[in-house]
Design a protein around this nucleic acid. Sequence first.
DNA 1: TATGTTTGTTCGGTAAAAAGAACATAAGTT
DNA 2: AACTTATGTTCTTTTTACCGAACAAACATA
Lengths: 181, 181
Amino acid sequence: MKPIELIAATLPRERQRAGLSLSQLAKQAGIAKSTLSQLESGAGNPALETLWALATALNIPVSRLIDAPQPTTRLIRAGEGPRALSSEANYIATLLSSCPPSARRDIFRVCVQPGQARDSAPHPAGTMEHVILCSGRALVGPLEAPVELAPGDYFTYPGDRPHTFKALAPDTSAVLMMESI
Amino acid sequence: MKPIELIAATLPRERQRAGLSLSQLAKQAGIAKSTLSQLESGAGNPALETLWALATALNIPVSRLIDAPQPTTRLIRAGEGPRALSSEANYIATLLSSCPPSARRDIFRVCVQPGQARDSAPHPAGTMEHVILCSGRALVGPLEAPVELAPGDYFTYPGDRPHTFKALAPDTSAVLMMESI
DNA sequence: TATGTTTGTTCGGTAAAAAGAACATAAGTT
DNA sequence: AACTTATGTTCTTTTTACCGAACAAACATA
């Protein structure tokens, strides 16, 4: 799938969502409408500043023009898909909702007993983890800068680098969301 | 802030994270290394296919090259944080993570006291809600078929139809994720 | 029916991005 | 030292994306 085809698909949709005609959008973005016309028809190879001008005029991030319809493609890749966490002796992770085709996240409930910390190998690039501690106490986060959490605390950190989860009190439980880009 | 400057900052970092030299990356992406050199020095106005080739070679989404890097970690202590949604007398919802450009989900922590049920108006079509109960007891779900949850229970239901959240015990707390299509 | 005003399209001229070669520099071999 | 193989930079050439103007088609106004 060539990148321009994605733009050709998303651009008219976002433009109409903003209630703009092709000519209006071109004027507002400060680009020639011929350029916009070709982009929407799937031809050409837009430069970054062109995309930037369009995204700004549409009041959306540039990424929405490029990989909004892309999530499915990224998930299909072998080796990059959602992986089940291994359940060690003192660490039980329950998969509550596996990643459906449209979304890009897994939700786990983790129940941990004090003892050895669970260090996770990095997940695919761009992964973020979100933790909300429900009970007990835990030391959570990047290996180089973990944070002690109390019930109700929320902490998010990059999952594509080494990170840890260590219970500091019995029956520590938390909600863990793994999110891909 | 011009977009090219962001790329110039991001590109070398991602390249080194992948353990590639400038020449290696250029070869693997199928672009001239002169092009890459100028991009990393903050000059030029790269075309979409150039960005695409680089992102693919680096095994990252294009948006990572373009959009400003989000703060990597974020900690919200229990009781702190922005109180989004209408905080009725017995219902406090804290927005933990609002929807970033690429993803489409909001994470809330809700703390509810027994009393009147909180009925929500339907959200946009396709929205799903996920609830993990942390403490207390609650009656949650679609108005016509709510479910009583105990700590640790997980329940998901369509958010685009009327639904309710009613605490059945004091200090009921839960994690709520609203997910768009 | 004429007359503007929009719509989105298809053309040449020009500025610029990308490719490729040549360059200097550095680190490792023989 | 002489040679090899990397590194990243700076050039020239070729390609092409952008612009602006001219264009046809649809709609409105008079």
